[in-house]
């Protein structure tokens, strides 16, 4: 019988106690090293003020049958003025893979160049890979001013 075997026989409780202590210390050490690293990898939420309404510009700045990207906080919004002069606004983020869409005058549709997705002027996905319609925004014309706001 070796010395360690003798010890095992003589002192099983002590050995197990040491194993538990060592094991849990090791686990605690690993945890206290890994946790800050993993937490560090997760980007913090930037404390930006939530935007609910933006001024897009004056009515006569927008030609009929045209579209323009408006900054809505950090997100792009596509403001379309139809041939009839009506304003419509949609999130310019393609529902497929996050590209930015544009108004296509020759076809009267909203189009994403990345994967050839097409939406009609109500934001409905009508061709190509987009799985969902574009989110719609509310357009308010106050006198000369065009305002865009989130739909409630």
């Amino acid at each position: 019988m070796t010395v360690s075997e003798q010890n095992k026989v003589r002192n099983p409780g002590k050995r197990d106690f040491l194993k538990v202590m060592l094991g849990s210390s090791l686990a605690a050490l690993t945890g206290s090293v890994l946790y800050p690293i993993v937490a560090y990898l997760k980007p913090p939420k930037s404390g930006e003020v939530e935007v609910s309404t933006v001024k897009a510009g004056k009515v006569d700045e927008f030609d009929r049958d045209s579209g323009q990207i408006i900054k809505f906080g950090t997100k792009p919004v596509l403001l379309v003025r139809t041939q009839e002069g009506e304003f419509r606004a949609f999130s310019a983020v393609c529902t497929h893979l996050d590209c930015t869409v544009q108004y296509r005058r020759e076809k009267g549709t909203i189009w994403c160049a990345c994967h050839n997705g097409t939406y009609d002027l109500t934001g409905r996905n009508i061709a190509g890979p987009p799985p969902r319609p574009l989110d719609e925004f509310r357009v308010i014309v106050q006198g000369e001013e065009v305002l865009i706001s989130k739909k409630a």
Binding site: I70, P76, C99, Q102
Partner: peptide
């Protein structure tokens, strides 16, 4: 430019 549409032919 985060506020420009994806260019055609990308």
């Amino acid at each position: 430019d985060a506020f420009a549409p994806a260019p055609a032919g990308i």
